[in-house]
């Protein structure tokens, strides 16, 4: 049994940093209070904090360990849930991996295990939001021909969304900007990369952009069957949280008066 005061491991927020933390938490054999990159998670009485530097070799060893001792599915779960917006996600993933190293492949059928349940919840939450935001993202054409979209998801989705949009929008350079997490995905027509960013200075919209927005809003309004109006259902399927980035719900593009 590990002993000594419980430790908060702090890392730099990168995926390799997280894997390094998992490595260290194992190697140091101390009770783990939390693994986190968030500053707002504070130390309590009788606890200790340890700042870790990312170590690529240790990260690769943990990655290989997960793949060999638990399986590719577990690694995939970790890769996706790493981008969760939940505060405890790093600690939850660590506990899940510990259970996985004990149980091996049996972890996949241990659906009632509390650590597995927590990570399944994170996974469900993030993939559901990913499915939603894939639909709810709206690009606008700027005068330099680049397309820009602003999103505000609760999870840190840009890294998970970029492959999807690059796959289908390869004809146009674009910017996918998450204003909640200050992260943008940039596709330059060849490859894509991530940049951390707060505000952005954007060029003007292209000339035809307003016209497309107006027509989209017109379509949106016309396609609803008035006799079936159901605001509750709409809000359930498309929560208000996402409305601020939806062109079709922006009153500025209401149909011109007739």
């Amino acid at each position: 049994m590990p002993d000594g005061p419980a430790v908060i491991y702090r890392y730099d927020g990168t995926f390799d940093g997280f894997l390094t933390a998992v490595f260290e938490a194992y190697a140091r054999r101390r009770p783990v209070k939390a693994i986190t990159a968030r500053e707002e998670i504070q130390m309590g009485w009788g606890q200790e904090e340890i700042f870790l530097e990312t170590h690529l070799e240790k990260a690769r060893r943990v990655e290989a360990g997960i793949r060999n001792k638990i399986g590719g599915t577990a690694l995939h779960m970790v890769e996706v849930c790493f981008w969760s917006g939940e505060e405890d996600k790093d600690t939850a993933l660590y506990r899940y991996l510990r259970a996985g190293f004990d149980l091996g492949r049996n972890i996949y059928n241990s659906l009632t295990h509390p650590h597995v349940l927590r990570v399944e919840y994170l996974y469900r939450n993030i993939t559901r939001e990913q499915d939603r935001v894939q639909g709810f993202t709206r690009f606008s054409e700027m005068e330099n021909g680049v397309y820009y979209a602003s999103i505000a998801p609760k999870n840190n989705l840009v890294p998970l969304l970029m492959p999807h949009f690059v796959d289908r929008l390869s004809i146009q350079p674009f910017l996918l900007h998450d204003t909640e997490h200050g992260l943008a995905g940039v596709y330059d027509g060849k490859g894509w990369y991530l940049v951390e960013t707060q505000g952005l200075n954007l060029p003007n919209l292209s000339e035809r952009e307003q016209e497309f927005r107006r027509m989209w809003k017109m379509f949106y309004d016309a396609v609803a069957v008035k006799e079936r109006r159901n605001d509750k259902l709409r809000q359930h399927l498309m929560p208000k949280w996402y409305w601020r980035n939806l062109t079709e719900l922006d009153p500025r593009y209401a149909a011109k008066g007739k």
Binding site: Q134, G135, A224, V225, R229, N230, L233, L237, M238
Partner: peptide, 9 residues
């Protein structure tokens, strides 16, 4: 993929 939901849900 659903891209939006109309006023009728």
């Amino acid at each position: 993929i659903c891209h939006s939901f109309a006023a009728d849900g």
